[in-house]
Amino acid sequence: MSTALAVVAPSLRTRRTGLRYLHAEWTKLRTAPETVWLVVGIVVATVAVSVLVAANMPCDTAVCGGDPTKTGLTGVQLGQALVAILAVFAVGGEYGTGMIHGTLAAMPRRAGVLAAKALVVTCVVAPAAAVAVTASALLGRHFLPGAAGLPAVLRATGGTVLYLLLIGLLAIGVTAIVRNAAAAVGVVLALLFLFPILAAAAPDPHWERHLLQIGPMTAGLAVQATTGLDKLPIGPWAGLGVTAAWAFGALLVGAVLLELRDA
């Protein structure tokens, strides 16, 4: 009996510690006034831009040789910036106010703190992303008839929601690395938009394709494509895997530096 208690007790303590960390991070994010506005902004900005683009297409994208589903999800390119800002705020806000010292004193398991922040941000972003992407896809289908079949549309929309969650995790990792909210926003936006700019400027088609394959945005948003998949620089799920590698790589580096550096 005593042996069983000795095995179970540490597990229960670990579970209680994890719940305490999650509760603390949820309370901080929930009570911040910026959180509500950013969540609303993710939905409004994504849907508004998607509808604006879809409603003003000069002709049916299916007839013009485009991809109606991907066109209807154009607003994600703006919505992802708000996702990144929300995630940066969850970490960088504490560095800006100095509250990080109190957080790490009360919760000394630093990797646990970062994991709790990542999970809480994911839980907040997930419903906003689901609503924004679903509404954009449905409205885009209204303005752009001739969209792909249901399986391809479900893959594009579901993959886009996952993409936005990965952008949030990427932003959390970057913020843990640079420890400054403004700098973190700049770094994340540069990672997202620099690769397509460099690809457009590349004189060699081989380098252009390679840049599009390794950029977190250009690779990840390949999951939105429903036509011409054989012509893409990278496949839909492989592209989402590239974004996941960026996100979890940033989280890993951020966790290591959080352990090694002073607050």
Rank of each mutant, 00 (worst) to 15 (best):
S2V: 13
S2W: 05
S2D: 14
A4N: 12
A4S: 14
L5E: 13
L19H: 14
R20D: 14
L22M: 09
H23A: 15
L29V: 11
L29P: 05
R30T: 12
T31M: 11
A32D: 15
A32C: 07
P33T: 14
V36K: 12
G41V: 10
V44R: 01
V49F: 06
S50G: 10
V51G: 12
V53T: 13
A54S: 15
V63D: 11
V63L: 12
V63K: 12
P68W: 13
T69Q: 02
K70Y: 07
T71F: 01
T74F: 12
T74I: 09
V76A: 10
L78R: 08
A81M: 14
L82W: 13
V88C: 14
G93T: 07
G93R: 13
Y95I: 08
G96A: 15
G98E: 03
G102C: 02
G102D: 09
A105H: 08
K117L: 04
A118P: 02
L119G: 10
V121S: 03
V125L: 03
V125P: 04
A128L: 09
A128C: 09
A129Q: 04
T134R: 09
T134Q: 04
A135Y: 05
L138F: 13
L139G: 12
R141F: 01
F143N: 00
F143D: 01
G146V: 07
A147Q: 14
A147N: 08
A148D: 04
A148Q: 04
V153E: 03
R155K: 06
A156C: 08
G159W: 07
L162F: 04
Y163V: 07
L164T: 11
L165A: 11
L169A: 13
V174R: 06
V178E: 01
A182G: 10
A183W: 13
A184K: 04
V187M: 03
V188E: 03
L189T: 07
L191C: 15
L191A: 15
L192Y: 06
L194N: 01
L194H: 01
I197N: 09
I197E: 07
L198A: 15
P203G: 15
P205C: 01
R209Y: 05
L212H: 06
Q213D: 07
Q213S: 13
T218R: 01
A219L: 03
L221Y: 00
L221T: 15
T226F: 00
L229H: 12
L229F: 03
D230K: 13
G235I: 05
P236H: 04
L240M: 02
V242G: 09
A244T: 10
A247D: 08
A247S: 14
F248T: 13
G249C: 05
A255W: 08
L260C: 02
